[in-house]
Simulated assay, not measured.
Amino acid sequence: MQTIGLIGGMSFESSAVYYRLLNEMVRERLGDLASAELLLYSVNFEEIVVMQKAGDWAGAAARLGDVASRLETAGAACILICSNTMHLVADEVASRVSVPFLHIIDETAASLKAAGCKRPLLLATRYTMEHGFYTDRMQRLGLDIAVPEAADRTTVHDIIFNELCAGKVLESSREKLMRIIERERAAGADSIILGCTEICLILDPDNLPLPGFDTTKIHATAAIDFALRQTAVA
Rank of each mutant, 00 (worst) to 15 (best):
A54M: 09
R70N: 08
V17K: 06
R63D: 04
L143Q: 02
P120A: 02
S83V: 05
G195F: 00
P100H: 05
L228M: 10
L102P: 07
V50W: 01
Y19A: 11
T135E: 03
G8K: 07
A34W: 13
L80W: 01
N162W: 00
I202N: 09
A74P: 04
N207E: 14
A76P: 03
D206K: 15
R153K: 12
K113G: 01
L112V: 09
H219S: 11
A186N: 07
A61L: 08
S191P: 01
M86T: 10
H219V: 04
I159C: 08
L177E: 03
A58E: 15
A36P: 05
H157W: 02
D91C: 04
I199Q: 02
S95F: 02
M138G: 01
A187T: 00
L6K: 00
S14D: 04
E107R: 14
A186G: 02
D214K: 10
I160D: 08
V233E: 10
A166T: 11
A16I: 14
L21N: 08
G116M: 08
L64F: 14
T197M: 07
S191D: 04
I199D: 02
I202P: 11
A62F: 02
A223Y: 03
S11T: 14
A58C: 03
A222C: 12
E24C: 09
T85H: 04
R70M: 06
I160V: 13
V99S: 05
M25V: 01
A110R: 15
T216I: 07
R70C: 04
V169W: 05
V169D: 12
E182T: 11
Y127L: 00
K168S: 10
F12V: 12
G9W: 00
E184N: 08
A94D: 09
V233M: 09
V147P: 00
F45H: 15
L164G: 07
L88W: 03
G9R: 03
I192N: 00
V49R: 13
A234I: 04
L112F: 07
A187Y: 00
E28R: 15
G188T: 04
G195P: 10
